[in-house]
Lab assay of single mutants.
Amino acid sequence: CHSECLGNCSQPDDPTKCVACRNFYLDGRCVETCPPPYYHFQDWRCVNFSFCQDLHHKCKNSRRQGCHQYVIHNNKCIPECPSGYTMNSSNLLCTPCLGPCPKVCHLLEGEKTIDSVTSAQELRGCTVINGSLIINIRGGNNLAAELEANLGLIEEISGYLKIRRSYALVSLSFFRKLRLIRGETLEIGNYSFYALDNQNLRQLWDWSKHNLTITQGKLFFHYNPKLCLSEIHKMEEVSGTKGRQERNDIALKTNGDQASCENELLKFSYIRTSFDKILLRWEPYWPPDFRDLLGFMLFYKEAPYQNVTEFDGQDACGSNSWTVVDIDPPLRSNDPKSQNHPGWLMRGLKPWTQYAIFVKTLVTFSDERRTYGAKSDIIYVQTDATNPSVPLDPISVSNSSSQIILKWKPPSDPNGNITHYLVFWERQAEDSELFELDYCLKGLKLPSRTWSPPFESEDSQKHNQSEYEDSAGECCSCPKTDSQILKELEESSFRKTFEDYLHNVVFVPRKT
């Protein structure tokens, strides 16, 4: 048989008469490798580009789960590009990614509803959504962080984005990388972005840091009482949809009607710091009717980097990364020049730590249904340095008659930039024990000054392991946590139920 035959053949030295091919099969003959313009397919066939392209389009058009959109890589027609490569849609070739590779997620039936953290986790790592997304989240724990972890990498949506009755959302900033909504599939009414009845939605994105392009379709905003109209108009300008909307697409009466839409800028007039305090004062603000001013709200939190936005980490279910302080308005003076500047002394802060701070007014709604208010920009203030805590785990070892090696770990709280350490030492008198000992005694162990690591005695271990207080009263049991108490109650309830079950099964009433 021919060298490319495997198993047997019907005619000697003829690659077209093989029972099976050793390498690849091409047009009725066995070959060692697939010549151009053919590609290896499933490690035994040679196919042309049209064959591989037909497989790709067949799966793409069917949208069946589990099928493969075949691509070409290293002269092979394979189910998908290997790690580190992405497909070129024009020629199906796998090309190296520039940075992290995109991950295209194809949605069944063309859309997916995100109504819980669990459903959001199914899209973790996706960068391109081939379909439409509907966000409908009523509640949950730590929602802002969970949504950002699972949806934060999405850069492109081919269909539309719909935010509907998501009472738990305060902001859409968890879509931190969303840059493009194509609108290839539109919501009824030709809408590519749809926001309806979101009672706590206050911000779409921080438009000073976020760009969003909507290729096709219109915007729809109705019944978002805490979303200011200025935020919607800003989205029109940034996304390129200005002029597409009709009169009733953006409701003037049901958007922002319960919001404090600040239209003035508060400026800080005085800032002073110490290692654990920050004193702030800002310019006074009074609405047209000074009785509408209820006070100020001061927001602050630790910020290692200057990239904080107002609604980071917030949701309507209680999660809030900001510390909020309510401040009463100052006494009002008739003389504008003698107006008191409101302020606040922030206490209990960490030394040498940068804080993000902003302040906003708290006002009631005027009778004319106009909203007044003022808010400052987010500023960054760093507390002063102070003395560091003591170095940890000092170790001293003498390696000769004239040297001592000293080692330690950095302090747990540096409280500033540590530039150097101060080492103090003092000579001590020799131990009298060394002169009084009889060095001729056998088995004498000389006193040693070398360091030995501390260890816990058996008594201390027994005390720590004991669940009861000892007789001397030195140790006591740790208080039980809520989960331990709940577990004990469940076990007790189970024992009672099981005992009742045994009584009912074992003891049967005697027939009379």
Rank of each mutant, 00 (worst) to 15 (best):
K103H: 02
C105L: 03
H106W: 04
L107N: 11
L107Y: 12
L108V: 13
L108W: 15
G110R: 09
E111V: 08
K112A: 05
K112H: 15
A120S: 05
E122I: 01
C126W: 00
T127S: 14
T127D: 09
G131N: 01
I134S: 09
I135S: 05
I135N: 00
I137G: 02
I137S: 05
R138A: 15
G140R: 14
G140Y: 12
N142C: 15
N142Y: 07
A144F: 15
E146Y: 15
L147D: 04
E148G: 12
A149T: 12
L151H: 04
L153W: 13
L153N: 14
L153C: 14
I157D: 01
L161W: 02
K162P: 01
S166Y: 04
Y167A: 11
L169F: 11
L172H: 02
S173K: 13
F174A: 08
F175K: 03
R176C: 14
R176A: 07
R176V: 14
K177Q: 11
R179G: 11
L180A: 11
I181N: 04
L186A: 06
L186E: 09
L186K: 12
E187A: 09
E187S: 08
I188Y: 11
I188C: 03
Y191E: 11
Y191W: 07
S192T: 04
F193K: 02
Y194N: 15
A195T: 12
A195Q: 03
A195N: 12
D197R: 06
Q199Y: 04
L201C: 04
L201E: 00
L201I: 06
R202F: 03
Q203I: 06
Q203Y: 15
L204H: 05
L204G: 06
W205L: 15
H210V: 11
N211S: 09
T213I: 07
T213N: 11
I214M: 14
Q216A: 14
Q216N: 07
Q216F: 13
G217F: 05
G217N: 10
G217C: 06
L219I: 09
F220K: 13
L227C: 15
L227I: 06
L229S: 10
L229F: 15
K234E: 15
M235P: 02
E236G: 04
E237M: 10
S239H: 06
G240W: 07
G240T: 01
R244T: 10
E246Y: 11
E246W: 03
R247A: 09
R247W: 11
N248K: 12
D249W: 11
L252W: 12
L252V: 11
L252S: 13
N255T: 06
D257E: 10
D257H: 11
D257R: 09
Q258A: 04
S260F: 02
S260M: 06
C261D: 05
E262V: 01
N263C: 08
E264S: 09
L265P: 13
L265M: 08
L266N: 02
K267G: 05
F268A: 03
S269K: 12
S269W: 15
I271A: 15
R272L: 13
T273K: 14
S274W: 08
F275S: 13
L280Y: 01
W282R: 00
E283R: 13
Y285P: 00
P287D: 02
P288A: 11
F290S: 05
F290Y: 14
R291A: 02
D292A: 02
L293H: 00
L294A: 03
L294Q: 05
M297N: 14
L298I: 06
L298W: 02
F299S: 02
P304G: 02
P304D: 10
P304T: 09
Y305L: 10
Q306A: 14
N307A: 15
N307K: 14
N307D: 15
F311L: 08
F311P: 09
D312I: 14
D312C: 14
G313H: 14
G313R: 11
C317Q: 11
C317H: 15
S319G: 12
N320I: 04
S321F: 14
S321N: 09
T323F: 13
V324K: 02
V324P: 03
D326R: 09
L331F: 07
S333C: 15
S333E: 11
N334A: 07
K337R: 06
K337N: 15
K337D: 15
N340A: 12
H341S: 13
H341M: 11
P342M: 07
G343P: 04
W344L: 12
M346N: 04
R347M: 05
L349T: 08
P351V: 11
P351I: 07
Q354K: 14
Y355T: 00
F358R: 05
F358I: 09
F358L: 04
V359K: 01
T361P: 03
T361H: 02
T361Y: 00
F365Q: 12
F365V: 12
E368T: 10
R370V: 03
G373D: 02
D377W: 14
D377A: 13
Y380G: 04
V381S: 07
T383S: 08
T386G: 04
N387H: 11
P388I: 01
L392S: 12
P394D: 06
P394H: 03
S396W: 12
S398M: 03
N399L: 12
S400Q: 15
S400W: 05
S401Y: 09
S402W: 06
Q403L: 10
K409R: 11
K409F: 05
P410A: 15
P410H: 08
P411W: 02
P411L: 04
P411F: 02
